[in-house]
Amino acid sequence: MKNLNAKIASIPMIFTALVIFVGCTAWTIYHSFTNSRLLPNNNWVGFDQYERLWDTKRWIVSVGNLAIYGVCSLVISVIIGFVLAALLDRKIRFEGVFRSIFLFPFALSFIVTGLVWQWILNPEFGVQKVLQSLGWENVTFDPLYNPDLVIYGILIAGIWQGSGLIMCVMLAGLRGIDGDIWKATRVDGIKTWKTYIFVIIPMMKPVFVTALVLIASGIIKVYDLVLAQTSGGPGIASEVPAKYVYDKMFNAQNLGQGFAASTMMLVSVAIVLIPWAYLQFGGKKND
C-alpha cells in the first residue's frame, strides 16, 4: 500500500469534505422539513417551514435588502474596481501608495468597518452635522435612521471595504494582457478609452466573471457588517437573510425556520454558482 500514508494524512480533509460540507449541509436541509424548535426533531412537516418563511415580513424584507445590496455592490464594486485598476495601470507614480490606500479596508473586520461608518453617518455628529454647520441648515443625511435608505448606508461601508479586492483582481487581469496589444492599438491609432471598451474589457471576460463570483459569494454571507452598523434597524429595515438565520437558530429557538432560511441561502448560491461552474469547468471536459 504505497498510498497508505497519503490516505491517512488526508483523513482531516476527507472528514471536512464529507462530514462537514456534505453531511452537515444535508442534515440541515433534512431538518428544514421538520418542526424543530428548541431542539432538532424528526417530525416531518413537508414544506410548512418554507411557507411560513415566505409569509414572514421580516424574511421578505431581508431578501429584498440582500437583492438591493447585492445588485448595487456588484455593479458599483466592478465599476470602481475596474476604473481604479485601469488608472493604476497607466504607469503612474506612487502606484504602490495608491494601491495600499485602496486595499487597506479589506484587511479590516466587518465589525470595525460597520462601527466606523455608523459613526460617520451619525446624524447628530457626523456628515449631516458638518453639512448643516457649513450653512445648509435643512440638509438631512441620515441614511442609517431612514428605513428607506438604510441599506444604502450599509452599501457605502460595504463598498469601502470590498472594492479594493476587486481592484486587485482587475489589476492582475490588466497586467496579464499582452503588451503587444497596446502597441498594436497605438499603431492603429485607436484612442485609449476605445481600446479599453472594445479590446481590453472583452479580453478580460474571465476576470470579470471571477470578480462577480467573488462578490456574489461574499454578499450572501453579509452579517457582521449589518450587525455592527445597524443591528438590523431601524425596526427591521436593514435585516438580511444571514441575520434572520442566526436569530431564529440561537435567539428565537425556532430551529426549523433557521434551517429553512439557511437552505434558501444555499439555493440562491447554487443559482449563481451552477451556471458559473458549468461555464468554467464544463467546457474543459470536451478536449
Partner: peptide, 21 residues
C-alpha cells in the same frame, strides 16, 4: 473528488452548517 467537494464547500453559506457543527 474530495478536493472538488472541499472547494465547492468554500461557497456554501456558513449558516447552513453552523448548527450541526
Amino acid at each position: 473528488t474530495f478536493f472538488a467537494i472541499l472547494v465547492l464547500g468554500a461557497f456554501i453559506p456558513y449558516q447552513i452548517m453552523i448548527y450541526p457543527i
